[in-house]
Write a protein that binds this DNA or RNA. Structure first.
Length: 202
DNA sequence: AGCACGATGCTCT
DNA sequence: GAGCATCGTGCTT
């Protein structure tokens, strides 16, 4: 039996999915090899009324995937050089999604270091602590870019998907404000829709 | 640990 | 043309 999360997992409110994704395993089978990490930070974006969401202006060519069915990847390009990965949640026509902001490497860490090694001036890999601790860092480490936009993570042949994994022992979850919303009006700016999985004893 | 800054190109006004 | 769901560097606490 497969440990892959089914579409029904994502066919729930984005806030529920964002919390439920913590501790699950994000997997990309790249060139026949598994690159995988434990999801440690997520963020929920709640549709057109959420003034921090890319769905705010209504349906455009950029955000169209968010209007489709749940379980699909919404991958966007930002700041001239970075890709970020979301998973669409809830039913068709409801443009909600969860941004994956950080993972902890569990499989293929050597490949992740190589994929990240052109990110600094020295050309060497970044320190372990900063390998996959940001939304654009994890996409770079997993080899995810704009070609993945609109892919179905729940299809049987999917090479990008999420596997069910038990929460680490002693894991704690915290909720805080979403990151990087410097110009977003209240109350959206301060809503605690960012979720983090903390290692024990934090 | 926490700022300020520049890189770089797409999206929507 | 303004702003951006960011990152790495370099500097200050």
């Amino acid at each position: 039996m497969s440990r892959r999360l089914a579409r029904s997992f994502f066919d729930r409110p984005a806030l529920v999915v964002a919390r439920a994704l913590l501790g699950q395993r994000l997997v990309h089978v790249r060139n026949g090899r598994r690159l995988a990490g434990l999801i440690t930070e997520t963020e929920a974006y709640l549709g057109e009324a959420d003034l921090a969401s890319h769905a705010r202006p209504g349906r455009t060519s950029r955000n169209a995937v968010m209007y489709g069915p749940p379980g699909f990847a919404y991958v966007y390009f930002t700041y001239g050089m970075h890709w970020c990965l979301n998973i669409v949640t809830e039913g068709e026509g409801t443009p909600t999604a969860v941004l994956l902001r950080a993972i902890a490497p569990v499989e293929g860490a050597a490949t992740m270091r190589r994929l990240r090694s052109n990110s600094n001036r020295r050309g060497g890999p970044p320190p372990e602590k900063h390998l996959t601790d940001g939304p654009a860092k994890l996409t770079q480490a997993l080899g995810i870019d704009g070609r993945f936009n609109g892919r179905d993570l729940c299809a049987p042949e999917a090479r990008l998907f999420v596997e069910r994994a038990g929460l680490p022992r002693g894991a704690r979850v915290t909720a805080g404000p979403r990151v990087g919303l410097n110009h977003t009006p209240e109350p959206w700016r301060s809503q605690r829709w960012n979720f983090r999985l903390l290692a024990d004893g934090r």
